[in-house]
């Protein structure tokens, strides 16, 4: 079954091509011209893409209502309003804020991130292949294709790897990783994360001395490169 997205946008031209683009990427898109009926439409949708400038109720109000009624459905704001105030206002309830004009790839990537976060299966790629690794996101399984063995990660190791996978292609600083995984503020000079990443690499990498899956970006942080 295709993942269903609710797209609320009043500009027909933009709506048309965004819809087409998203449908090409394998989503089913429900398009609404205003906030009216949004709550009902969102019922069986996995994600909501919401414009701010809407006839009648504005996107902020619609978004807040949607979040109240369907807290589990992620909302991605898609707006030409770019001021910090608007962004902060939007991020009060929304999960992401994309400003127009946007690249369709960017929107698709952000939607993907939100869907992954929400636990919705990304329809297209059930199996992710990273070099010698096959990652089955659905059942949290990692298989080393060279040996055919499954790689068992400890809780924290898995969390770190999952976090980096969620932000695939992006660099995350050690503070960001630590705070996302441990859920507490990073303390300066804390080596815990480094130790965990070393162990993680020992399990994942073919040659832990020259890691290719989890790259170190000197002076910045770590990333998992897109295949």
């Amino acid at each position: 079954m295709k993942t269903k997205l609710l797209y609320i946008e009043d500009d027909t031209e933009i709506a048309t091509w965004v819809r087409e683009d998203l449908e090409e990427r394998g989503y089913e898109v429900v398009w609404l011209g205003s906030g009216e009926g949004a709550a009902e439409a969102a019922l069986d949708c996995s994600l909501v893409i919401l414009d701010v400038m809407l006839p009648g109720l504005d996107g902020f109000t619609v978004g807040q209502r949607l979040k109240k009624e369907h807290p589990a459905v992620p909302i991605v704001m898609l707006s030409a309003r770019t001021s910090i105030d608007d962004k902060l206002h939007g991020l009060d309830f929304a999960d992401d804020y994309v400003t127009k004009p946007f690249h369709p790839d960017e929107l698709a990537a952000r939607i993907e991130v939100q869907l992954r976060k929400a636990g919705t299966v990304v329809s297209s790629e059930a199996v992710l292949t990273l070099d010698h690794l096959s990652i089955y996101e659905q059942d949290n399984r990692i298989v080393n294709e060279q040996t055919g063995e499954e790689i068992i990660l400890s809780g924290k190791q898995f969390h770190i790897f999952a976090y980096l996978l969620r932000h695939m292609g992006m660099i995350r600083t050690k503070e960001q990783i630590y705070e996302a995984v441990w859920n507490e503020p990073y303390l300066d000079g804390d080596k815990t994360l480094m130790v965990h990443i070393r162990h993680l690499r020992e399990k994942l990498e073919l040659d832990p001395a020259n890691p290719v899956i989890i790259q170190t970006v000197r002076g910045v942080g770590y990333r998992v490169k897109k295949p």
């Binding site: 500009d11 031209e13 091509w17 030409a80 400003t99 004009p101 946007f102």
Partner: peptide
């Protein structure tokens, strides 16, 4: 800004 961005978005789409 909004009015400028909207047509830009359309151009981007095309």
């Amino acid at each position: 800004s909004h009015d400028l961005r909207t047509p830009l978005t359309v151009i981007r789409g095309h």
